[in-house]
Design a protein around this nucleic acid. Structure first.
Lengths: 160, 160
DNA sequence: GGAGATTAATTAATATTTTAACAGTTTACC
DNA sequence: GGTAAACTGTTAAAATATTAATTAATCTCC
């Protein structure tokens, strides 16, 4: 029967936001100096790692909603970074892959990205970094909330 | 002389993004059902906690850049959630405070927010939640990167 | 084999992000 | 006392986010 403080004072989303902001302060200038946005870099690395992917998969993995993705992919193709084509079997699907130019750019940026990580590690420590990644990986696996159950607490009869 | 794997495979920013996405999946429907955006909710709670604040402070604490904040505050005032006024001493400064209507809305939402946290805790565990918050708090304190040192590796004369 | 449900991507409309440039105030310094 | 520098917020323009509606293709099942 312990009396815990309210959980919402944890401000988990805000901490995640601010932590990301602190980290991105290191990476952003590098990406921008190559004319890339954060989203474009996420997509480039994804395609470089996994080969060609369906647009929907890119959206999921890169945390970009499909309406945003449509425009981003168009601009990236126009910039020569990727190729877009329709799936021959199911022509609803859009298949995306990195171009040679995009791959070359990725290779140029990778060492600079690694240098950013080393700066961060030198301040934050390898152990805590690993520990943090581990916790985040688990948190990402949170089950999708079922049917807005939050409202049962409000719409159900008040039994007190 | 151990050979660590490349740090950039950690993908820290992406993990922070996806973790936040997983968490916000719980909160977003609640906020949206009250017609609030994430940013508006961050601002409302900030003002409810700390009383009236300068716009610049709101921007810092809520992780919103000032150009975005300008429009958001105008719309929030139009919606009756906040008040805006100029500082009488230094008329450059904009003072923002929550309205009665905004405060009432905050009070209605707070318990639903708490319910979301409890769902998340029941899955993730109190210990790991506390541990994660602790790590994030430290990461937020990363020093601002100094002068884009990443480029010394690229702009220096190629000696090969 | 075809009407209706489902899926994948796109368009539309509005809000927010991001970088840069700008305008109005205040401060500092001579 | 006046001017340049610094500060605070705003506007501008392009990109992205968000929700809803739409299009096109596939699937289901009768």
């Amino acid at each position: 029967m312990e009396n815990h403080p309210p959980l919402h004072q944890h401000r988990l989303p805000q901490h995640l936001l601010r932590a990301r902001e602190a980290v991105m302060a290191y990476f952003r200038p590098v990406l921008n100096s190559f004319g890339l946005t954060e989203q474009q870099w996420r997509i480039l690395r994804l395609l470089d790692d996994r080969g060609e992917l369906e647009a929907g998969v890119v959206a999921d993995l890169a945390c970009i909603l499909s309406p945003s993705l449509t425009g981003i992919l168009v601009r990236m193709e126009k910039a020569g970074l990727i190729h877009r084509r329709r799936d021959t079997v199911d022509s609803r699907r859009l298949i995306v892959s990195v171009s040679e130019e995009g791959r070359a750019l990725t290779r140029r940026i990778a060492p600079l990205s690694e240098a950013c990580y080393e700066q961060i590690e030198s301040y934050f420590g390898r152990d805590k970094l690993d520990q943090l990644i581990q916790l985040l990986s688990e948190l990402e696996k949170l089950p999708v909330p079922q049917g807005i159950p939050q409202f049962e607490a409000v719409t159900e009869e008040t039994t007190d």
